[in-house]
């Protein structure tokens, strides 16, 4: 498989505290990589860096032969637009679901987008709620709208930060099915940050454990769960307290 991202000696520091310190990590084109770890492990920071929303303090991310370092003020817009991040707590604009889904396309100056928007709404099962105002939506509906808003852009890489946190089983199933469909049918590379190790096991080709900002282990999902090489991975999978 072709390498899409390569991370080298990546460090991110907020107010003097190192929140991420990854020596090396490669993300393959067309894979689903799950990143698991306890709260505060640096998972969301990793996603923001992969989305080129903030430059790292040290090290580099290589994406499509372009380096993203502390000296990069901004990645080229065309490259940045190949990657979309769905946040754990998505914020919608106070307008209709349809307008929210079309928002990213409008930012790109695409006007004739109605068929793509309808398709994205169908993908997340929100087609009947297209005209509903976003402020009346439930948590699951907000998450699904945010996903539609991301997939309508047909990104090469979809970064998902806890996409099913606090959702009911119906919505979890719907979103997990969509993630698998996007990967299988469209070859979309997906990086999935999740607390839910069962979800990682169900969806991911490879799984990585982040602990205190450091990458403990990355392995094929089967091996990660059945035969981990690091004792901390074993402890995390078994639900033990690790530090």
């Amino acid at each position: 498989m072709k390498i899409l991202y390569h991370i080298d000696q990546l460090r991110q520091i907020y107010q003097g505290r190192t929140v991420l310190d990854v020596t090396e990590l490669s993300i393959r084109q067309g894979e689903i990589l799950a990143v698991v770890g306890p709260s505060g492990a640096g998972k969301s920071t990793l996603l923001r860096l992969l989305a080129f929303l903030e430059p790292p303090i040290e090290g580099k991310i290589v994406f499509k032969d372009h380096e993203f370092t502390s000296l990069t003020s901004e990645m080229p817009l065309a490259l940045r637009r190949r990657v979309t991040l769905v946040f754990q707590r998505p914020l919608l604009i106070n307008t209709s679901v349809r307008a929210n889904v079309a928002y990213g396309l409008r930012l790109r100056g695409e006007r004739d987008h109605s068929s793509r928007v309808e398709q994205a709404l169908r993908e997340v099962g929100m087609e009947k709620m297209a005209n509903v105002r976003s402020r009346t939506l439930s948590g699951g509906e907000i998450q699904r709208t945010a996903l539609a808003r991301a997939i309508v852009l047909q990104p090469e890489v979809l970064l998902l930060d806890e996409p099913t946190a606090n959702l009911d089983p119906y919505n979890v199933r719907l979103i997990e099915d969509l993630i698998q469909r996007l990967n299988l049918q469209h070859g979309m590379t997906i990086v999935l940050v999740t607390h839910n190790i069962f979800q990682a096991r169900r969806l991911a080709h490879r799984t990585a454990l982040l602990l205190d900002g450091k990458l403990v282990e990355v392995a094929e999902t089967g091996r990660f769960f059945e035969n981990p090489t690091d004792s901390r991975t074993r402890a995390f999978i078994q639900g033990e307290w690790i530090c």
């Binding site: 989305a51 604009i93 990213g104």
Partner: peptide, 21 residues
Amino acid sequence: DPALRLQVMALGATRAQAALA
């Protein structure tokens, strides 16, 4: 909410578009 700007940027907005949002 400061997250709004970041989320709009994550959808491919330019800095000016994010400020407008």
